[in-house]
Amino acid sequence: MIQNNPIGRFIAHIILIIGIMIVAFPIYYTFVASTQSLQEIMRPPLSLLPGNHFWENYSAALFGGVGRIGGVGVDRLLFNTIVMALAIAVGKIAISILSAYAIVFFRFPGRMIFFWLIFITLMLPVEVRILPTYKVMVDLGLIDTYTGLTLPLMASATATLLFRQFFMTIPGELVEAARVDGAGPWRFFKDILLPLSKTNIAALFVILFIYGWTQYLWPLLMTNRNDMTTIVIGLRKMISFADADTEWHLVMVTCILAIVPPILVVMLMQRWFVRGLVETEK
């Protein structure tokens, strides 16, 4: 440090604390609201301290039979979302690592064409092909299925590019040593490449889990039945009713339930997450 300026540092702390308050306040506010009764919520301003309806609201939302969206419980929505986030994360990693392995460690006709075919999918997000994709999904009978929710999102240029970049840093001598040691492509993949990719896989897992959890347009298009949709879409359906009918206290609870799992994943796997994020995108 050049300047050991205590006043400057003090100001820095103040600004950071204000920043954290801005960043955290909407979440905190929703949490506070989730512990209030409906009447309290409808009479602003809301107290800034949690109310005493925590157990009441949360058990009502989770087990109570109330707080259902079109007859579907929050537990079902959470389950669907977890399935979607996990399947997308695991599927994407598996598919991408295999493609990257093929592209980096083999030489075969059409290699670069395949690479570009994968690369170009970066430029074809769902948003630019909404209707035709929907039609394909209808034709294949994938609407309202877990396959439909997850499989089409498993192809990922970003993850393939990340693994490819990482694989290219693996010294050729290591491959040769393995070949001299009698390891074929499968053994090399299982014994050497996978263990070496552990950190990258962990980092990517966090990012893809969040990606899967926060999907919006896709589940909106791919699900008609309420029992097949995700918690984010479920929430949207809860608040789209006229204000008077909405059970806001349960909306707040559902909102917190939709936010907490991915936040926990990010917090607990922060080290991987930060590494993965900065490296995936660069």
């Binding site: 960043v23 955290a24 506010y29 959890w213 926060t214 929430l235 608040i239 922060q270």
Partner: peptide
């Protein structure tokens, strides 16, 4: 600690981010 507390919103779905601000 600052970093930990500042990265929360990344995990929040955009739609829910919108709802949080709508609640406020």
């Amino acid at each position: 600690i600052y970093r930990t507390l500042l990265i929360w919103p990344y995990a929040v779905a955009p739609a829910i981010a919108g709802m949080l601000w709508l609640f406020l």
